[in-house]
């Protein structure tokens, strides 16, 4: 455990190394938030759409924004660069588990991502008025669900990042993943707005746990047993993806050792 704690601490201190790609992805997120707020404000007005009122929608969109910021600092382009430059060979010689090491780094960087997210919350609440707050029990469920976003999103990013063992073009892979996650996680539009069969399938996919579950819990649209079930689904998917990532990694490394770096 100790080497991983050390890695997390190191990455927590060196968050500014990747500040530029971070700033770039934040630009994207902030303007996406701005556009979505404007759209939903115009659509909902004083009424409600699909059972969601304007304060609830603000809560939903702020969580979507936060989940977009989470796990965006490390792993993504940093890991791609290490694989493409062949530096990964050095990582392989270290006496620590690669996957756990990357997760530790990601966790270390979470504080600045949360800081940016918090600024977003303050800004929106100041400018657009209060958001919907659920009761304390659901607030706690929300916090747990948000925490579960970190390993879940990390694993999705990590597995797609492994694609760099096969292609030099991580930018394209990254765009494709962002698009898929945006849609299937509910980051652009709540899953209940999608055609019902499609929305139902999406609810059971791992991506829902990256935005939809915590967002709906905070917005009060997922409550009681349904909220607990959503949280459990996040945990189950995190475990399954952890194993899938291991399997993908094994294949990828075989690729590396057979074909050279």
């Amino acid at each position: 455990m100790r080497p991983y704690l050390a890695l997390a601490r190191a990455s927590a201190r060196s968050v500014l190394t990747y500040r530029l790609t971070f700033v770039f992805s934040m630009f994207g997120l902030i303007f996406q938030l701005l556009a979505l707020l404007a759209i939903w404000h115009a659509v909902i007005g004083a009424g409600q759409v699909n059972g969601l009122t304007w304060p609830q929608m603000k809560s939903y969109l702020l969580v979507a924004f936060s989940c977009g910021a989470l796990v965006s600092l490390y792993t993504d382009f940093g890991m791609a660069a290490r694989i493409q430059s062949g530096m990964v060979a050095v990582d392989l010689t270290r006496p620590i588990d690669y996957q756990k090491a990357r997760l530790a780094e990601t966790v270390g960087g979470v504080w600045i991502e949360l800081l940016v997210a918090a600024l977003g919350w303050c800004g929106v609440i100041t400018l657009l008025g209060t958001i919907f707050w659920p009761d304390p029990v659901h607030l706690l469920l929300f916090v747990l669900s948000l925490a579960a976003v970190v390993p879940l999103k990390f694993l999705v990013v990590y597995i797609t990042g492994l694609a760099c063992f096969w292609t030099q073009n991580y930018l394209g892979i990254n765009w494709a993943r962002v698009a898929v996650v945006n849609l299937l996680s509910g980051a652009l539009i709540p899953l209940s707005f999608l055609p019902s069969w499609f929305g139902t399938v999406a609810e059971y996919l791992p991506f829902a746990g990256i935005t939809s579950t915590p967002a709906l819990i905070l917005a009060g649209d997922l409550h009681g047993l349904a909220a607990v079930r959503g949280l459990l689904l996040q945990v189950v998917w995190a475990l399954l993806l952890w194993l899938l990532a291991r399997a993908t990694w094994a294949t990828a490394v075989r690729q590396l050792t057979v074909h050279g770096g």
Binding site: G172, I173, L194
Partner: peptide, 25 residues
Amino acid sequence: KADFLVMIFAAVLSQGVGLIFLAAL
């Protein structure tokens, strides 16, 4: 060539998702 295909695929996917968003809305 692989780059070429990956980039086109990613672009279509990104724009397509935006369109699905509009249609769903």
